[in-house]
C-alpha cells in the first residue's frame, strides 16, 4: 500500500488514537512512521491542550457526529489559506487526540456509572480514524506524495539526527 493512500493514513490515525487512549499497542507493533508520529503529535497535543484550553472548553463534543463536525470546521479553517506542511499535518493528529479525549470525557459525564478509564468503543475510534484519513488524503494527498510521502518526507523531517 502506498504511504499516501487512504488505508495507510487511516492506520496512522488508528495507531495514534490507540496511543492517546492508552490501549495496548497493536500487533505487529507500530512502525517507524507511527512511532515518530506518536512522539511528535503527543508533544503538539500537550502544547495545544494548554494553549487552546478556553476555546476547547467551548466546544461541545458529546457524540462522534459532533466530533466530526468540529474536526471538519477546524481543519477547513486551518488549511483555508491553501498552505500544507508537515507541521500542520501533525496538528491534525493532535486535534484527533484532543477530540477523542473530549468525547470520552463527555460519555463518562453522561453516564457516571462508566469507569473513567473506560475506552471508546471500536466503532467510534474507527469512525474517527476514518474522517481524519478522509480529510488528509483528500486535502493533502497530492502534497504528501510530492513531498516524499510519510515514510521518507515525514521521517526525514522529524526523525532526530
Amino acid at each position: 500500500m502506498s504511504d499516501c493512500e487512504f488505508g495507510y493514513v487511516q492506520a496512522l490515525a488508528r495507531d495514534y488514537l490507540c496511543h492517546v487512549l492508552q490501549r495496548p499497542p497493536p500487533r505487529p507493533g507500530p512502525d517507524r512512521v507511527s512511532r515518530l508520529l506518536r512522539a511528535v503529535a503527543s508533544a503538539v497535543q500537550r502544547d495545544a491542550e494548554r494553549t487552546l484550553r478556553p476555546s476547547l472548553d467551548d466546544l461541545d463534543v458529546a457524540s462522534v457526529e459532533a466530533a466530526r463536525a468540529v474536526f471538519q470546521a477546524v481543519v477547513r479553517q486551518e488549511f483555508a489559506d491553501g498552505v500544507v506542511n508537515w507541521g500542520r499535518l501533525v496538528t491534525v493528529f493532535a486535534l484527533q487526540g484532543i477530540l477523542a479525549k473530549k468525547l470520552l470525557r463527555a460519555r463518562v459525564a453522561l453516564d457516571p456509572d462508566l469507569d473513567r478509564d473506560r475506552d471508546l468503543d471500536a466503532d467510534t475510534t474507527e469512525e474517527i480514524a476514518c474522517f481524519v484519513a478522509e480529510f488528509i488524503t483528500s486535502q493533502a494527498g497530492g502534497w504528501i506524495r510530492q513531498n516524499g510521502g510519510w515514510e521518507h518526507g515525514f521521517v526525514q523531517k522529524f526523525e532526530p539526527r
Partner: peptide, 29 residues
C-alpha cells in the same frame, strides 16, 4: 459557519503547525 471557538482553535493549530515546521527546518539545516 464555524463558531468562534472553532476559528480560534484553527488559527492556533495553524500557528503551532507552522512553528513546528519552521523549527524542524532549522534543525535540518
Amino acid at each position: 459557519a464555524p463558531a468562534e471557538a472553532e476559528i480560534e482553535c484553527a488559527l492556533q493549530l495553524r500557528r503551532i503547525g507552522d512553528k513546528l515546521n519552521f523549527l524542524q527546518k532549522l534543525l535540518n539545516l
